[in-house]
């Protein structure tokens, strides 16, 4: 049993691990032989070395970006869930605003960054606002969809028991919406850092995005790649946390779709 489990897991994990190792080896080899010009892409050794040399710089900028991305993501998610719950209970509010929320998913809201910079100035605030807004809409819409798509039989059952709208929300709709919430959170988490980085280009003087831009301008390629990899690692860490939370809530999220 355990052995089979291990074999199954091995079959899943081994191929991508081998592939990554092979890619890194090819990358290292072509950089070492000069096949890959240094100005194009420095070797893995050089990037790793940069992590060591520029640790302080990377840490400083990573902290700024982490604050913006995590803070914005948290604010946007909490507001998104709260707004979805309120709109589920208050029909006139939903009828007035939902159309706008639906349209917003197609809008490149990030282009309003310069407007924001004019209003609040450069720094952490405009970046965090942009991350919050770009998190808010997917979380809100995912949650709304989850709340709306609660199994009609369950809704009918609660109705026949003359449950109040609030009781229906807490006892059926909210648990049923959790899988949708987690799907939305995963999307939000994977975009939070990218949006923070990109916004930093024009709205901040610190952060990994700023570091990527500046080290690119000065042709400090290893530092640039180290900053990019740092952002990728933080994104993966956030995604991992959300996956963990989803697994912990597994009793709801997995089975809510089954029976």
């Amino acid at each position: 049993m355990t052995r089979e489990l291990w074999m199954g897991r091995g079959a899943r994990i081994l191929p991508p691990v081998v592939l990554v190792a092979a890619l890194v080896a090819i990358w290292g080899w072509s950089a070492a032989t000069g096949l890959l010009p240094r100005w194009l892409l420095p070797g893995p050794g050089a990037v790793l070395h940069e992590f060591d040399v520029s640790r302080a710089v990377l840490l400083k900028h990573a902290q700024v970006t982490a604050t913006e991305a995590l803070g914005g993501c948290a604010i946007g998610s909490v507001l998104g869930v709260a707004a979805a719950m309120v709109m589920t209970l208050v029909a006139p509010l939903r009828q007035t605003l939902y159309a706008y929320a639906l349209a917003s998913r197609a809008l490149p809201l990030i282009v309003f960054t310069p407007v924001l910079v004019i209003v609040v100035g450069r720094g952490i605030v405009p970046v965090m606002v942009i991350v919050s807004v770009t998190t808010y809409f997917p979380v809100f819409l995912g949650m709304m969809r989850g709340l709306e798509r609660s199994n009609p039989d369950r809704m009918e059952l609660l109705y026949s028991l003359s449950a109040s709208p609030t009781q229906i929300l807490w006892k059926v709709q909210l648990p049923s919406a959790l899988p949708y919430l987690f799907a939305a959170l995963k999307v939000a988490a994977s975009t939070a850092f990218v949006n923070a980085l990109v916004t930093e280009w024009i709205a901040a003087n610190a952060g990994l995005g700023y570091l990527v831009m500046v080290s690119g301008q000065y042709f400090r390629l290893p530092l640039m790649w180290a900053a990019i990899f740092s952002a990728a690692l933080m994104t993966l860490a956030l995604l991992g946390l959300i996956l963990l939370a989803e697994r912990l809530a597994g009793r709801w999220t997995q089975q809510a779709t089954e029976v």
């Binding site: 369950r154 009918e156 059952l157 648990p175 029976v259």
Partner: peptide
């Protein structure tokens, strides 16, 4: 009592 047993799975 509905056709599906309509249990709240959680």
């Amino acid at each position: 009592v509905q056709q599906g047993s309509t249990m709240l799975p959680w």
